[in-house]
């Protein structure tokens, strides 16, 4: 077992597992964010955000999530470096063979998502946790951070909206390959199941990206 996660296949299995974990996280994240545009009031979102920020179990999971992100990124970089080293002299002429297009650009889409992640943490998470200055709101006699207002104010700025949408599209490209590729890495290959997994990956990517894009758009063009 000691060599398992240092081997090329072991590293990919770890990355695939973490990737699927992050894929589940994205669904939760999207679900809570959608509360902002589903309801007239920001209260449901603020209550949900409060729960996510204070519940002990969720707080433990938050650490797992940060660890997951860091490991996925670290392993991704290590694997990419080794892959680049494996071909010191590149070809003079290349030909686009019939391959999974986005699989060739995982590191490129990853860099865009990575930059976004840092900015995104500064925009919201660190505002609430460290910098303070988040407005407060009273719901049913209890004081909550008005994180919803923070989001509304952010997404009133045109370039912020454009930047977020731009990144979501690249996140979609990353997911399009990542989702189905993870199952192949786990060794899951089945005559009927694999096409279902591939289709689910496309549906997931489109739905999640469309959902995330919808939020800043609705807020920007709404009242």
């Amino acid at each position: 077992m000691t060599n398992f996660f240092t081997s090329s296949i072991g590293k990919k299995i770890l990355m695939a597992g973490l990737g699927l974990f992050l894929i589940v996280f994205l669904l939760v994240h999207l679900g809570i964010n959608l509360l902002l545009i589903i309801f007239e009031s920001r209260d449901p979102f603020n209550i949900a955000a409060h729960f996510m920020g204070t519940n002990v179990l969720i707080k433990i999971f938050e650490l797992v999530l940060f660890g997951g992100f860091l490991l996925h990124i670290t392993y991704g970089l290590i694997v990419q470096m080794q892959n680049w080293i494996a071909r010191p002299v590149s070809y003079a002429k290349t030909h686009p063979s019939q391959t999974s297009f986005f699989s060739k650009y995982m590191i490129h889409t990853a860099v865009i998502i990575g930059i976004f992640l840092v900015i995104h943490l500064f925009d919201f998470y660190l505002q609430a946790k460290i910098f303070g200055g988040v407005p407060e709101v009273v719901i049913d006699g209890k004081t909550y951070h008005d994180l919803g207002l923070l989001v509304f104010e952010k997404f009133k700025i045109g370039w912020v909206v454009i930047f977020y949408i731009f990144t979501f599209i690249f996140l979609g490209f990353h997911l399009l390959h990542g989702f189905q590729s993870a199952f192949q890495t786990f060794g899951l290959d089945h005559r009927t199941l694999t096409p279902v997994i591939k289709a689910s990956g496309v549906i997931y990517s489109v739905v999640v990206v469309a959902g995330f894009i919808l939020i800043p758009l609705v807020i920007y063009f709404g009242n």
Binding site: I9, K12, I13, Q82, N83, K104, Q180, Q184, T185
Partner: peptide, 30 residues
């Protein structure tokens, strides 16, 4: 290097070796 599940190998293999073998080696390795 490691496998990115790109599928270029299968597309260019003169003997049509399938990517399902890569899924199998991953399984065997696990």
């Amino acid at each position: 290097g490691s496998c990115s599940n790109t599928g270029a190998c299968e597309a260019e293999c003169p003997k049509g070796i399938s990517l399902t073998n890569i899924a199998r080696i991953n399984r065997e390795f696990i």
